[in-house]
Simulated assay, not measured.
Amino acid sequence: MVTGDSMRPTLRPGDRLVVTYGARVRAGQVVVARFADGTLVVKRATERRGSGWWLRGDNPDPGVGVDSRHRGPVPDRAVLGVVRGRLWPRPRRLGAFEDVKE
């Protein structure tokens, strides 16, 4: 379940997601990852950097949320799964670079 506003307008707090854990990650996909401090996050994988992924929130306000701008690249092993869609409250498939605004 999404918490916070860092993925607006694509995802909203309270959205429940369908995630494929262990899936191969491609740039542009929304992923579930774990930061080094143990925080579980939903972010967009924007590009590979070294041995990890650069993750960013979709919210254009730089003061909302924490992502790779604050924490650096996330190692491959810490990117847990790829978000395939929103299950509730407005079901919809989610593709790479696709906003699910409604």
Rank of each mutant, 00 (worst) to 15 (best):
R12F: 15
V66W: 00
P89I: 07
L87R: 12
V31G: 02
D61Y: 05
G81A: 04
G50W: 13
D76L: 07
T20N: 11
T10D: 02
R12E: 11
R92D: 09
Y21G: 07
G95S: 14
G72A: 06
V74W: 07
H70Q: 13
R90L: 11
P62G: 08
V25S: 03
D15I: 02
G52N: 01
V74F: 05
R8A: 07
G38V: 04
P13S: 11
L94M: 13
G85P: 11
R69N: 08
P9G: 03
F97V: 12
G95E: 13
V82E: 06
G14M: 07
G81D: 09
G22C: 06
V82L: 04
D58M: 00
S68K: 06
P91C: 03
G72K: 09
P75Q: 08
V25L: 06
R49F: 05
E98C: 14
D76R: 13
V100A: 14
A33Y: 04
L80H: 14
R8L: 13
G50H: 13
D5G: 09
H70S: 11
E98M: 14
A27K: 12
P89F: 08
V100C: 13
H70Y: 02
T3H: 06
G72Y: 08
V31S: 00
L87N: 04
L17G: 10
H70I: 02
V79R: 08
P91H: 04
G4R: 01
V74Y: 04
R71G: 01
G72E: 10
D37M: 03
R84D: 15
G81E: 09
L87T: 07
R44K: 10
P89R: 06
K101I: 09
R8G: 03
R34D: 12
G65R: 02
P91S: 03
R34H: 03
D76T: 14
V25H: 07
D58F: 01
W54V: 15
D76W: 12
V18F: 11
M7K: 00
Q29I: 10
V74E: 07
R71M: 11
V30W: 01
R44P: 07
G57N: 08
G14H: 05
V82K: 01
V30N: 01
E47Y: 10
V42W: 02
D99M: 08
P9C: 09
A36S: 14
R24L: 13
A78D: 15
L40V: 15
K101N: 07
V19E: 07
R12S: 12
